[in-house]
């Protein structure tokens, strides 16, 4: 058995003349959580749909649980679970009826079927809601139901497309605990997300941009990449209270500042290493009144993706910055 839950080798997908995925490769070890990031339209959902066998690739090959997606999509379907971005269970059926239905299409029978349904209900705490119509559940509970329906047959690989979009922080935390539990049992997980804190919980993250895999690796590796904080530059955080927007505007105009991002009441700067904090403090004094706290920081995952996106855009435009 392959040590990888998922292996993608140079997958491409075209829709007419539009390239949705371009030569994407990645590997996910069994029991690992892979975080797939990227702006809307970058190809995340297309990649997941290919791996689920819903869409054929136009180039390359991918293996899910050791099986090739091109020729074994039926066998793959029995071994995977898929939680789509939009709630896709039957709203006019109860929680139990939905679970009954999906357990039966996954060929679970008799005592074992009952056991697996009960297990999924217990794991997702859906117990009090079993007789409720799925359409009447709130977003967080719908998401738990989707997960429950996707794991009863003990899939080897589980795909979740933005599972935490639009649900509250408590439900989000619970869902991630559930994902860690499944990963601990050896299930390979692929999760797409826009949340950086979620990306940091993944074993490996990949960043898709304009249908290409721009970067991938462990979160800690990515934040130390040379092209994220180039030689001769460093990252500083400026705490500036209410006026962060004004500070950003001012900082952008400084010749030794390469990049500016707002984080709440602070601004993150990418500056030439030689420039001292006091110099920056003085330069910003007319918008901060001076004396603000400035401290060196390491790049965050968001910094990584913002930076890489900019570099890519500049390269595409023929720039050299």
């Amino acid at each position: 058995m392959s040590e990888y839950g998922i292996e993608v080798r140079g997958i491409s997908r075209e829709f007419g003349t539009f390239r949705a995925l371009s030569d994407v490769s990645l590997t996910v070890r069994r029991g690992e959580i892979y975080g797939l990031l990227g702006p809307n339209g970058s190809g995340k959902s297309t990649l997941i749909r290919i791996l689920c066998g819903l869409l054929a690739p136009t180039g390359g090959e991918a293996f899910v649980d050791g099986l090739p997606v091109r020729s074994a999509s039926e066998a793959i379907r029995a071994r995977i679970g898929y939680v789509p971005q939009k709630f896709s269970l039957y709203e006019d059926m109860t929680v139990r009826e939905n679970l009954d239905f999906f357990s039966s299409v996954y060929r679970l029978k008799g005592v074992r079927r009952k056991e697996r349904i009960d297990w999924a209900i217990q794991l997702t705490n859906l117990g009090p809601y079993v007789d409720r119509l799925a359409g009447q559940l709130s977003g967080g509970w719908k998401q738990r139901l989707s997960v429950a329906a996707a794991i009863m047959h003990q899939p080897r690989v589980l795909f979740l497309d933005e599972p935490t979009a639009g649900i509250d922080p408590v439900a989000r935390r619970d869902l991630w605990n559930l994902l860690f539990t499944l990963a601990g049992e050896g299930v390979t997980l692929v999760v797409t997300t826009h949340y950086m804190d979620e990306a940091e919980r993944c074993g490996t993250v990949g960043y898709l941009y304009l249908s290409r895999m721009l970067a991938q690796g462990r979160p800690a590796e990515l934040t130390r990449r040379d092209d994220v904080t180039p030689a001769g530059m460093r990252r500083l955080e400026v705490e500036c209270g209410e006026g962060a927007a004004a500070v950003m505007g001012r900082a952008r105009a400084l010749p030794y500042v390469d990049d500016v991002t707002i984080f709440g009441n602070a601004v993150h700067l990418l500056v030439d290493s030689g420039v001292q904090a006091e110099v920056i403090d003085r330069a910003l004094a007319d918008v901060t009144n001076g004396g603000v706290r400035i401290r060196p920081i390491t790049a965050s995952l968001e910094d990584v993706f913002v930076r890489l996106t900019k570099l890519q855009a500049a390269a595409a435009a023929g720039g050299t910055k």
Binding site: L54, P84, V105
Partner: peptide, 13 residues
Amino acid sequence: ERGTLEQLLVTPV
């Protein structure tokens, strides 16, 4: 239209 077809089609049905 409701998106349930996609969920149905990833099953072995």
